[in-house]
Design a protein around this nucleic acid. Structure first.
Length: 606
RNA sequence: CGGGACGUGGCUCAGCCUGGUAGAGCACUCGCUUGGGGUGCGAGGGGUCGGCAGUUCAAAUCUGCCCGUCCCGACCA
C-alpha cells in the first residue's frame, strides 16, 4: 500500500523561474524530477514510476518482434574509428580517457557496437533476419539542452537494429517496427502522427518519424488535412502555383540596372515593382565534405539560387551535396567566388563546377569551375527574372535560367510554406505547418556500417554479402513529456492510465476523522486487490491541499472519501474532464476498475 | 559557437544604480487553531549574497577574470 504520508513527493507551489514549457514546469512542480545540471536530471519516485510503465510497454511490444540486449554505455574508441564516426560525430560525443590513456566515449547510439556483434557472430543468410534491441541510457553532449526533459544530455532510449540479407527483408523489418511503434504510442495514450523524414547525411532509403503535435516541439511538420500527407519540413515538398512572368524589357536580353541600396529582396521587389517570386535570391555557403588524409576538413564553395520568396532548406542541401555541415560564406569568400558583394549576388557569369559522376550519390565535382551552383527546381522553366549582378548597387533583369546561366545541380532545396499545395497527385489540399516533438524514428540504414566494419554473411549462392541494417529509436522520457504537453491545464496535468505512476488517488478529506481513515484504508485495499495502482493520501493536511496536489501530479482518477461516507457515498473525480460523480462506497472499486480497464483496452485496441 | 539575461535561505523574488545591521512571501520546526480547494495566530531554525582576485577604513552592492543556469540563434534524435 502506497501511503502519501510516507512517500517522497516534493510538490512545489511555484515552478522554477527557468522553466518555460508546461511539461518542464509540471515535472518539477509535481516532484517527478529535479535538475542536477544542464540537461541532466534526477528522476524521483513518481517520475521513475511513470518511466517504468512506459518502458514496460515498449519492452512488451518490442519482445513481439525482437530480442532484448543490454550493451555498455561506456564504449571503446575502436568501433567508432572503424565506422569513421569517431571523427564525424564531433563535439556531440562525450569522450574520456581511461587510466592507460586509451580513448573511450559514452554511447550516444549503438550502430557500431551492434555491428561488431553481427560481424563476430553472423555467418549465414540462414541466421537472418535478426532484430536486436536494448533500453539504454544515452549520452549526447547537446550544445543546448532545453525545456526540461525535452532535450537533455542523458536520456533513456529504446534503440533497435535489424539485419537482413536483402531489401525485401529490410522492408519487412521496417514494417514490423512501424506496427510495433504505432502500438506502443497508442498504448501510451499519445496522439501521434507518422511523418516522412530526412534520413540524414548517412543515407538510407526510407525514414519515418513519429511525432506528437505540441507547441513545445522543436520540429516543424507539414501536413495535408485532405489526404493525410505528413512530412518533416526537412523533407516536405509541395506543388507550386505557376508564377505569372513579368514582361521582358527592350530586346529581352539580360540588362544591367542601377539599383542603389537594394541589398534586400524586399528592396529589389519594390524597386522593380515585381513580386519576390520573380526575383532570384542567392545564398552562398561553404559546405564541408569529409576530411583530407591529414584529417583536415574539406570545404566546398556552394551558391544556392532560389525564388526570392523561398527559404533554403539546409537539410535538403546537405543531403544533396553529401555534406556534413554548411556555413554562410565569409565576405572575403564572397569576393573570391562571386567577385561581388552580399546583397548583389547573381548566377549570371559564374563558372559552375560540373558533376563527374552523374546519377551517383553523393555527387563528385570537377576541378574546373569555381563553385558548385545549385538551383532550386522552382526556377526551372522560369524566365525574365531579376537577380544580382555581382556588382555593388547593380541588378540584372530579363534573366532566364538555362539561357543566361547554367548550374551544377538542380534539385529541391527549399522549405515548403504553409498554404502551398499538397504534393500528392490530384489532392486539392493546402499544407499546414505545425510544431511537434519527435518521440520515435525508424529508418533504413543500408549497409553503411556492415560494409565499413566488415560484417559479412554468405547468401544462398555462397557469395559474401554485407547484411543491410535498419535502426529504430524511441525516446522514453519524450513519451512522458509529450503526454504532459498534450494533457495539462492551469492546475497540473493528467496522464493516461497506462503510463501514470498511479491509476487512482484516494483523498481522505479529513485524516483526523478515524471513520474516514478507515473507509479510505479499506477502499485502497480493495482497489489494490482489484489490481490497480493506488495512492492513498492519508496526510494530515487540509482537504484543499490534498486536492491541489492530486490535481497536479498526473493521476487520472481521484476518489474523495469525505463527509458523504456517512451516507455510503464517495466522489469519483476524472482529472481529464474535472468531472465529479457520487458513487456508492461499496461499488466504487468495481467502477474504477472497469473504467481503467476500458481505457487500457481503448489504448491497446489500435 | 554567436547574441541576450540571470546567479541573494529549499522555491519565487526585493535589496545593487547611490558601498556601512542581509530582507519579504511561500516552504520547514514547535504550540494553539482550523478541517471540502494551497486555514488563522504566535514563536523559531536556516543564507561563505556562484567562485577567485582587485579597489576601499568598509563590498551582496564598484572593477576584472572564471564558473554555472536559462532564453534566442546555429546545431541536433
Amino acid at each position: 500500500m502506497h501511503r502519501w504520508s510516507k512517500l517522497f513527493i516534493p510538490t512545489l507551489r511555484e515552478a522554477p523561474a527557468d522553466a518555460e514549457v508546461a511539461s518542464h514546469k509540471f515535472l518539477i512542480r509535481a516532484g517527478y524530477i529535479r535538475q542536477l545540471g544542464a540537461g541532466i536530471y534526477n528522476y524521483l519516485f513518481l517520475g521513475q514510476r511513470s518511466l517504468n510503465k512506459i518502458i514496460a510497454i515498449v519492452r512488451e511490444e518490442m519482445d513481439k518482434i525482437g530480442q532484448e540486449f543490454y550493451l555498455p554505455a561506456i564504449l571503446p574508441k575502436e568501433p567508432w574509428a572503424e565506422s569513421g564516426r569517431w571523427t564525424t560525430m564531433g563535439d556531440n560525443m562525450f569522450r574520456l580517457k581511461d587510466r592507460k590513456g586509451a580513448d573511450l566515449c559514452l554511447g550516444m547510439t549503438h550502430e557500431e557496437v551492434m555491428t561488431t556483434i553481427a560481424r563476430g557472430e553472423l555467418r549465414s543468410y540462414k541466421q537472418l533476419p535478426q532484430i536486436w534491441y536494448q533500453i539504454q541510457t544515452k549520452f549526447r553532449d547537446e550544445p543546448r539542452p532545453k525545456a526540461g526533459l525535452l532535450r537533455v544530455r542523458q536520456f533513456i532510449m529504446k534503440d533497435a537494429y535489424s539485419f537482413d540479407i536483402n531489401e525485401a527483408g529490410l522492408d519487412e523489418s521496417f514494417n514490423r517496427h512501424d506496427v510495433a511503434y504505432r502500438t506502443i504510442f497508442t498504448r501510451c495514450g499519445l496522439k501521434f502522427v507518422a511523418v516522412e523524414a530526412d534520413s540524414g547525411a548517412m543515407g538510407g532509403s526510407q525514414s519515418q518519424e513519429f511525432m506528437v503535435y505540441t507547441d513545445a516541439g522543436e520540429d516543424l511538420i507539414a501536413s495535408c488535412p485532405v489526404c493525410g500527407y505528413a512530412a518533416n519540413l526537412e523533407k516536405a515538398t509541395s506543388r507550386l502555383d505557376p508564377v505569372e512572368e513579368i514582361e521582358p524589357t527592350s530586346d529581352g536580353n539580360p540588362e544591367l540596372v542601377h539599383t542603389p541600396g537594394c541589398a534586400a529582396i524586399a528592396d529589389v521587389a519594390a524597386f522593380f515593382k515585381i513580386s519576390p517570386a520573380s526575383d532570384i535570391k542567392c545564398v552562398a555557403y561553404m559546405a564541408e565534405r569529409g576530411f583530407t588524409g591529414e584529417g583536415h576538413e574539406i570545404w566546398l564553395p556552394v551558391a544556392a539560387f532560389l525564388r526570392g520568396d523561398h527559404q533554403v532548406n539546409e537539410t535538403k542541401l546537405l543531403g544533396l551535396l553529401g555534406a556534413s555541415q554548411v556555413r554562410p560564406m565569409h565576405l572575403e569568400e564572397l569576393e573570391k567566388y562571386f567577385h561581388g558583394p552580399a546583397g548583389y549576388l547573381g548566377p549570371v557569369g559564374l563558372k559552375p563546377k560540373q558533376v563527374t559522376n552523374p546519377g551517383s550519390s553523393p555527387p563528385a565535382f570537377s576541378e574546373t569551375g569555381e563553385l558548385v551552383v545549385v538551383i532550386d527546381r522552382s526556377l526551372e522553366g522560369r524566365k525574365n527574372m531579376v537577380c544580382g549582378a555581382n556588382k555593388l548597387d547593380y541588378h540584372q533583369r530579363n534573366v532566364t535560367p538555362g539561357r543566361d546561366f547554367t548550374w551544377t545541380l538542380i534539385a529541391d532545396i527549399r522549405s515548403v510554406n504553409e498554404g502551398e499545395n499538397c504534393p500528392k497527385d490530384g489532392c486539392a489540399g493546402k499544407l499546414v505547418v505545425g510544431t511537434a516533438v519527435e518521440v520515435g524514428h525508424i529508418f533504413k540504414l543500408g549497409d553503411k556500417y556492415t560494409q565499413s566494419m566488415g560484417a559479412r554473411v554468405l547468401d544462398e549462392n555462397g557469395k559474401e554479402v554485407a547484411p543491410i541494417m535498419g535502426c529504430y529509436g524511441i525516446g522514453i522520457e519524450r513519451i512522458l513529456t509529450a503526454a504532459i504537453e498534450q494533457s495539462n491545464d492551469a492546475n497540473g496535468f493528467w496522464l493516461p492510465v497506462s503510463i501514470a505512476p498511479f491509476s487512482v488517488v484516494i483523498t481522505i478529506t479529513n485524516s483526523a476523522d478515524t471513520a474516514l481513515r478507515a473507509a479510505g484504508e479499506k477502499l485502497a485495499a480493495d482497489l489494490e486487490s482489484a489490481g490497480l495502482d493506488v495512492l492513498l493520501d492519508d496526510r494530515d493536511e487540509r482537504a484543499g491541499v490534498k486536492f491541489k496536489d492530486a490535481d497536479l501530479v498526473g493521476i487520472p482518477y481521484r476518489i474523495n472519501v469525505g463527509k458523504k461516507v456517512a451516507a455510503g457515498q464517495v466522489e469519483l473525480v476524472t482529472r481529464a474532464t474535472s468531472t465529479s460523480e457520487d458513487v456508492a462506497l461499496s461499488e466504487v472499486a468495481e467502477l474504477v476498475k472497469k473504467r481503467v480497464q476500458e481505457e487500457l483496452l481503448l489504448e491497446a485496441s489500435f
